[in-house]
Design a protein around this nucleic acid. Structure first.
Lengths: 230, 230
DNA sequence: ATGGAACTGAACCCATGGGTACAATCAAGG
DNA sequence: CCTTGATTGTACCCATGGGTTCAGTTCCAT
C-alpha cells in the first residue's frame, strides 16, 4: 500500500493539494513546499510520489480535469428524458452547466490551462480531449435524439451543441470578469434563459413568429411559469 | 526627449519587447534580461523607464490591449453602411473579427490575462474595460442603428451584440486549441458564415420558414453568391 | 568644445525555490 | 521483537533571476 502514516491515500491528497496551490499561485509562483503543507505532507514525500514539479502539475491537472468533466456530463442527465417540457429541460441543463462553469475549481482549471498551455502542450491534449470536446459530443448525442423525435429542427447536432454552449457560456466571461467575480444564481438562471430562447429561435420547432410576438420578452415560451427550478 | 542613442523611442521598444517576451514565457518565467535583449537595450535601461517588473508588465499589457482594441473597432467599420447587403456585411465583419481573434498577439494577450488575473487584478480593469466591453458596446450601437432602420428584429442591442460575438468566437476555442494551433482562412470564413446564419435566425427580419427550407444549408440566405470576400 | 543626460556592459548582492541527503520516526508483517 | 519501508524535519547545494552599482561611453544642446 501507499499508505502507512496518515491513513488516507497520500498520492490523492498530494494531487488535490497541488491543484489547490497551483490554482492559487499559478505554476511558476507555486512552490512545492506549499503544496506539501497544503496536502499535510512533508516535502520529500511529494518528490517520493511525483518525480518533478512538472509531472506533479501534469497529474494534478489531469485529475482536476477528470472531476470537472464528470460533473459536466452529469449535468446533461435531464436531457435523457425526451418527452418532458423541452424549453424547461434545456433551461435546467443550461443552468446547471453555468453553475459548473462558474465553479471555482473549473475557473482555476481554465486559467491554468490558458496560462501554461505554451509550456505544457501535452496538457492541452489531456484536458481538452477529456474536457469540452467530450461534453460537446455528449450534448450533440442528446440533441440528435431530440431532433429525431421531431422536437428540434437540427441537421447538424455537433453544430447545434457547439452553438448552444457558445450562447450559454459566451456572455458569462464578461459578466464574471473572467471567473474572478462571483455571480449570483438568479443571474445564471437569466443567462440560461436567454441562451435557451436564442437556441430555440435557431433550432426550435417551427416558430411562426407573428408580428409583435417577441419571444425573448416572454419568460417561458410555452406558458410554463418556470419559477420552480433547482 | 526620451531618445538619445538609438533613434526610435526607447520606451516603446521596451514595451513591445516586453510583451513579446511575456507572451513567449509567461510573466513569472520571463526575465528582464531577455526583455532587454528583445528590445535591443541594456537591462538598466529597462529599469530606467519602468520601475518594476510588475509595472513593466502592466504597461506592456495596456499597450497591447490598446492595439488589439483599435484593430477590432476598425473591423466594425463595414457596419457603418446601413444600406448594403446585410448578411454579406455581417459575414465580412465576422470574418474580420475572427481573423483578429486568432491573431497571435491577441491570443497571447488573452492567455496572459487569464494567467495573471489573480496576481494583477487591476490589469483586468484596464484590458477588459478597454477591450471586449468597448467592442460589444460599439457593435451594439451599430446593431441598434440597423434595428431602427428595420433591417434587424432587435429589442436589446447589447444582448444581440453579445450573442453575435458568442456565436462567432465560441466555436473557435475548440478548433484552434485555445489559440495554439493556426487555422486557415477559409475555415474562419465558414465559421463566420454559420455564426451569421444563426444570428439572423434569431434577429433577422421575418424569416417565414417554409417546410423544408433550411437556412443553414444555404450559403447565403438572400441569394447573393458571397464568394467574393476580402 | 563641454557639460549633462541617457545608455551600456558587467559585475555584484541577495532572496527564492527546485531538488537532495540524512538521521530519526512510525507503522506493518513475520 | 525486529526488520522493512515509507515518512518526516531539517539542513543543505545550487541555479535562476530581480534589482542595483559603477565606471565608461555616446549623443545632444548650448
Amino acid at each position: 500500500m501507499a499508505t502507512t502514516r496518515g491513513g488516507g491515500d497520500r498520492r490523492q491528497a498530494i494531487l488535490e493539494g497541488a491543484f489547490t496551490v497551483f490554482a492559487r499561485r499559478g505554476y511558476a509562483q507555486a512552490c512545492v513546499k506549499e503544496v506539501a503543507a497544503e496536502a499535510g505532507v512533508a516535502k520529500p514525500t511529494v518528490y517520493n510520489h511525483l518525480n518533478d514539479k512538472a509531472t506533479l502539475f501534469r497529474h494534478a491537472m489531469q485529475a482536476a480535469a477528470q472531476n470537472v468533466l464528470d460533473e459536466r456530463l452529469a449535468a446533461l442527465d435531464p436531457l435523457k428524458d425526451a418527452d418532458g417540457d423541452l424549453p424547461a429541460t434545456l433551461h435546467d441543463v443550461g443552468h446547471r452547466l453555468l453553475r459548473l462553469h462558474t465553479d471555482e475549481r473549473a475557473c482555476a482549471l481554465r486559467r491554468l490551462l490558458y496560462s501554461e498551455i505554451t509550456h505544457f502542450p501535452d496538457i492541452l491534449e489531456i484536458v481538452t480531449e477529456s474536457g469540452p470536446h467530450r461534453l460537446t459530443q455528449a450534448l450533440a448525442d442528446r440533441l440528435a435524439r431530440l431532433a429525431l423525435a421531431g422536437r428540434l429542427r437540427i441537421t447538424d447536432p455537433d453544430l447545434a451543441a457547439e452553438q448552444f454552449l457558445s450562447l450559454l457560456t459566451g456572455p458569462l466571461e464578461a459578466r464574471t470578469r473572467m471567473g474572478t467575480r462571483p455571480i449570483d444564481d438568479t443571474t445564471l438562471s437569466d443567462l440560461a434563459r436567454t441562451a435557451v430562447n436564442a437556441f430555440l429561435q435557431i433550432f426550435g420547432p417551427q416558430v411562426t413568429t407573428e408580428a409583435g410576438t417577441d419571444m425573448r420578452k416572454v419568460a417561458n415560451p410555452d406558458g410554463h411559469p418556470l419559477t420552480v427550478e433547482e
